[in-house]
Design a binder for these strands. Sequence first.
RNA 1: GGCGAUUUAGUGUAGAGGCCUAGCACGCCGCCCUCUCACGGCGGAAACUCGGGUUCGAAUCCCGAAUUCGCUACCA
Length: 517
Amino acid sequence: MANNENNQRPVRVRFAPSPTGPLHIGGVRTALYNYLFARQHGGTMILRIEDTDSRRFVPGAEDYINESLAWLGIKIDEGVREGGNYGPYKQSERRDIYREHVKMLLDAGKAYIAFDTPEELEQAHAANPNFQYDASTRVNMRNSLTMSKEDVDALIAAGEKYVVRFLINPGRDVEVHDLIRGKVVINSSILDDKVLYKSSDDLPTYHLANIVDDHLMEVTHVIRGEEWLPSSPLHVLLYEAFGWQDTMPQFVHLPLLLKPDGKGKLSKRDGDRLGFPVFPLEWHDPKSGEISSGYRESGYLPEAVINFLALLGWNPGDDTEIMSMDELVSKFSFDRCARAGAKFDFEKGKWFNRHYLQQLDDAVLAEKFVAVLRAHGVNPDDFGMEYVTRAVAMVKDRISFVKDLWEQAKFFFVAPTEYEPKAVKKRWSEQMPQIMEELIGVLQGIEDFSSSAAEPIVLGWITEHGYHMGNVMNAFRLTVVGECKGPHMFDITELMGKEETIRRIKVGIENIKLPEA
RNA sequence: GGCGAUUUAGUGUAGAGGCCUAGCACGCCGCCCUCUCACGGCGGAAACUCGGGUUCGAAUCCCGAAUUCGCUACCA
């Protein structure tokens, strides 16, 4: 049995994307599961580029795939960049290998040559909407089964375009053993004689290239999306046709990632429409010039994306949710994989991002904040990194993204010029300018402006005069922050300093207008 | 249409005949903390697709239907 053979072979898995555009987040998850499984078994992770569709090739896509996986921490052991003993790892560079294998099939009578043009096939479909190129119809088509060898050779010699089709014998129940779904049976009669090779570009189709490469690269587990389940019997048949059934890999078909709303597979279009990216990195489409947002550029940490993705379709069996890559590697298993597709709703992903952001060291976060400050016209050098770091430390527990830091901490760098009307209405009153003047006096008299020293003095003064604690403190906050939110008031003033604090109160007294009655 | 897969709260999931008055997390709502907003703590609303069986007993087993998704290309 293939099973027993596989249990003895070293684990080798592959992630095999087509360079037809940016790597989709669903593809990322497939890559992740492959990676987790490989690592767990001390196996090898292969990255194979499946560029057998010359017409759909998109420049830059291959680099994008490499860069995405690198950013996410999914390390490739063998591939175009990494090298390895089973190369080349790009299918367009394996033409000789495929040609040779096509010939093997042809010689063994397991495949045949077909000359039907796209137009002829279209006609066949027009005449019969249920038309399928198979045992019931191939006898009426222009192929090497219905033509003489001389005619076939003559056509090929004349440069006629042809394809090689897999000859499928009908009426057989083909079993596929899937590690997640168990045994799946499909009758070979519903399969068509798939095109394995096209002479037009001298390239195989996915099915042939896939089987040949997986075999030659000694892949032990084919872990891929569920969209491949219906064609997996065809793949089983191909392994048999080559006589490779004893080393046929184990199949694992992962549930798909679906749109959070509506219906269908999560797609490119859903990206910006839904308010979160569906691509790991920002993508500039070379043709349309269209830009699609990416997780990296949107401020997500790779750990958060990985953690969230891992839990879409798999769980460790207990309530653990926060897991590092290493923990995922040790806990992962196919028998804890879900079978139904998961709606890709990134709300929870935000929560993961928030979690990992909180774990970051204040100084590291401050460094990340520098770019945001500059983007808002603030030169961090005017304040110094210690100041930036202390400001970040005070507000970090209220952010989900690095960019949120600006909204939460901007007042540390820019004095308010406007005052939130609602807060003014609630906390500013006729006598408030006078009280604020008094506050200035109190603050001026404080030697040690630290939070712990200043707080009791100010609070004592408020109580002593019978002022309303909430109103006075919030009016104070209003002048310094511009609105009624933010960290502990005296922590703010400690960092800002006496001079700046008093200056802001004065500006506030001047500029805050009592709302019209 | 055909074939296959699939089905627990809004979302991701736990659950493998009695432990289920169905657990956890995100989100949502409320309360507490408090100078504010957050954080945090506490609490709440919210689900077994439907119909038949089997069984003393079913979210869990069987049958049927429905649902959703995928495939049905000289795309992967």
